[in-house]
Design a protein around this nucleic acid. Structure first.
Lengths: 190, 190
DNA sequence: TCCCCAGAAGCAACGGAATTGCTTTAAGGT
DNA sequence: ACCTTAAAGCAATTCCGTTGCTTCTGGGGA
């Protein structure tokens, strides 16, 4: 016996996982990030604390899971008709989402409760996937494109580094400059 | 009444701070990063737990302090006679120290228990200072140099991003490539 | 020199989070 | 329809985190 066609997924485990995740999101909005506690989340989710400890280990890893879920892009990058404008728009949006207080908090949580680095890797993969879409589209147009790794190194990494280590003096202009420099450099060395 | 000329600094506060820091370092080596706990550290340091909680807030912030202390560079960058070799050597050493398991743990701790971002800023400042020394030296030789911000964006940031988000496939060759690309790009667009 | 005062550490008690052995229930396969 | 296995519930225990109050250190002023 399985579930219907709606969102409710298979089995008790999945139900628990879903209710815990939504409990985290709800409580995060209600009591704030620092008011979160495992017993509190458990109560809201209609679950015993030990269940959470056994499945996630501790609060940090649970928050890390939820954070990664929230950092997943919900749309594919818009098509602006050219590589430069596609990348620029994407970088600006990326910066917007990640540099906000909420975005920074999610990044921190994701890195924090992540012993083996798999959650952080997932975040990086999200960005790489988005960039890959943009680059593939550009290549199909016949444009000359840098590699995904190059874009990650010279656009994503600088933005993320500044978000984490030097929040001051980071704006859309800087993001645009990074993209511009990347494309100049790429076509120049071609 | 003050202290003698040796390392023991002024007053009870400083003595406590020192003994707590050394207790953290000792216990980190003995019981491992995950075995650390405030009461344990307090006992080793000959201090009551409440003292630590009042001074540092929680374990995370204490570890963040200790981590930043360890991430401070202990030497000025070696002079290899040219900007390219200076930067390359520095990048390789930076990667070596930061990408090791111990280095990654310190970076994580420094970022983690750092509500206002001042510790992370300090880490970034360490790297920027080192780079500034190299660039200034190059400028005095009459070499054409990029700005510190540019080096941070295109060498430090990519390395740090990969350390944090994508530990796999990161080696000295990649660090060298980043420096090479930076200097090409810089002279090319001049 | 002595005393006083502000700040920091010690002490102790309490609330609640984290952990664990055992039991119970649900899901899926035979 | 049963049986097996994995996951959740339950309950008890430990000890971490927190706080009000007391005690002590050490620097500055009378």
């Amino acid at each position: 016996m399985n579930e219907q066609a709606d969102g409710a997924p298979r089995g008790r485990s999945a139900r628990v996982q879903a209710s815990v995740h939504t409990a985290v999101r709800e409580l995060e909005a209600e009591v704030g990030r620092d008011g979160l506690t495992v017993p509190l989340i458990a109560q809201r989710a209609g679950v015993t604390p030990s269940t959470i400890y056994r499945r996630w280990g501790d609060l940090g890893q649970l928050l890390s899971d939820v954070a990664v879920e929230r950092l997943r892009p919900d749309t594919t990058p818009r098509d602006h008709g050219g590589l430069a404008s596609d990348l620029t728009a994407w970088a600006e949006q990326f910066l917007d989402e990640m540099a906000s207080p909420a975005g920074r908090a999610y990044i921190r949580d994701a890195l924090l409760g992540d012993p083996d680095g798999s959650n952080a890797g997932q975040c990086s993969a999200y960005a790489a996937d988005q960039i890959d879409v943009i680059l593939t589209r550009a290549a199909e147009r016949g444009e000359d494109t840098p590699g995904v790794e190059t874009v990650v190194d010279h656009v994503v990494a600088p933005l993320m580094y500044r978000i984490l280590f030097r929040p001051a003096g980071l704006d859309a202009a800087h993001a645009r400059g990074l993209v511009a420099r990347l494309l100049e450099g790429h076509t120049a060395e071609k």
